[in-house]
Write a protein that binds this DNA or RNA. Structure first.
Lengths: 212, 212
DNA sequence: ATCAGTCCATACGAAAGCGTATGGATAGTA
DNA sequence: TACTATCCATACGCTTTCGTATGGACTGAT
């Protein structure tokens, strides 16, 4: 997170506005990205906004492209470190279920995919994630079509868990159920009896508790 | 579907307005439920609306409660016919991935769950679905906590598949991949080596192709 | 025929949002 | 000091939507 919230510069940049737009989307959806409310939140007026952007669509575009770029960097940087494919997939699952904010942000952006511009970005992000997952499964020893099936399966489960956490938080949060559930996912979403490593190898990262 | 769209009655009912609101939500999200556009769509003016409802919130409430009630009736009525638990779960999965409109509707409503009123309904629906699924898994021979895990797993995958179909339709639609994928889901989301019936029993319903 | 109830049309005011126009303030530069 | 570029404030008009007020049309009952 390279974001400096409420930075104390004396002048705003376009990225500051885009960050504010992302924050507004995360807890208010796309329609919460309105020029004057954003300006109030940043302590300025519309005059600043229309200096940096031509119109509202421009900041929406900038925001989601910023989001798409960041989530790419994060995934790549984190997952690349883990070389063993089976453990890499496990790591991805655990991390993917980590940040509450990122989940809400994805759902908010995806909910606005009627807008062709947003739909295109969401589609690009989904494709990239699926491709990456598929490559992991291929590396695990699966044939092309099987890798696609497993990747789609895993990614769908991830998306659904995201949604369920928002729609019925109690379904996952009670007791230590979430941890147990993630363990179950990892066990079920990785095919057995193929690949290079047995389950439960050393160096396993324990699933951290859910973010507040 | 007991809905008569563009009915030729000479006078409108509150449910007609609620239906129109659901239609608007299905392809436009919650903010598409606006009084005057709805009135234009129904061929009347606001005067009619404010005769049937006190304000905009009232029709939103009526619409999603209508939706919640209908989806309950549908699920119950369909799944109750299948007595064998394993086959019932299979049936649920196949049906759940059937209607495109229902999926978009769920996502549209869930995306508006910031509204406490909507959030409450979504939570109620989620809980009910999870309870039902859990009961199916229990009937299959799973212990309580395992049944909950499997039900959560299956429901998350269902929700995620819904979302993926919207966010990246090509990921599921190419070739006969969707059919193959659903078969894979059914195989993976039902535990083996327990329960009353082996997989592939006679009377299996073939997954119908995706709705247009 | 009148009267009450039902359903809708029309006109109005208020609020929120978008975008434009224009001027002010500040910092750097010649 | 004067000039310019950068960044923001303010004021305005336009549109959309909400909600109200009021009246008209049509129906059934007495």
């Amino acid at each position: 997170m390279a974001t400096s919230k409420t930075s104390n510069k004396q002048t705003l940049s376009a990225e500051d506005w885009a960050d504010a737009a992302l924050a507004a989307m995360a807890d208010g959806g796309l329609e919460a990205v309105a020029v004057e409310p954003l300006a109030r939140r940043l302590g300025v007026t519309k005059g600043s906004f229309y200096w940096h952007f031509a119109n509202r669509d421009a900041v929406v575009r900038a925001a989601i492209e910023l989001w798409a770029q960041r989530e790419t960097d994060d995934i790549i940087e984190i997952a690349r470190k883990v070389t063993a494919p089976r453990r890499r997939i496990q790591t991805i699952f655990k991390l993917a279920n980590g940040s509450e904010r990122e989940g809400r942000l994805y759902l908010a952006i995806a909910a606005a995919s009627r807008d062709p511009m947003i739909g295109h970005v969401i589609e690009k992000v989904s494709r990239r994630r699926l491709e990456y997952l598929k490559a992991c499964y291929t590396e695990l020893g699966l044939a092309d079509r099987d890798a696609r099936k497993w990747a789609t399966f895993a990614y769908s489960t991830f998306l659904g868990t995201l949604q369920l956490r928002r729609d019925d938080a109690a379904a996952l949060s009670s007791d230590g159920f979430f941890t147990e559930y993630v363990r179950h996912l990892i066990e079920m979403l990785i095919p057995k009896n193929i690949g290079d490593q047995p389950p439960g190898e050393p160096g396993d990262v324990q699933p951290e508790e859910r973010a507040a």
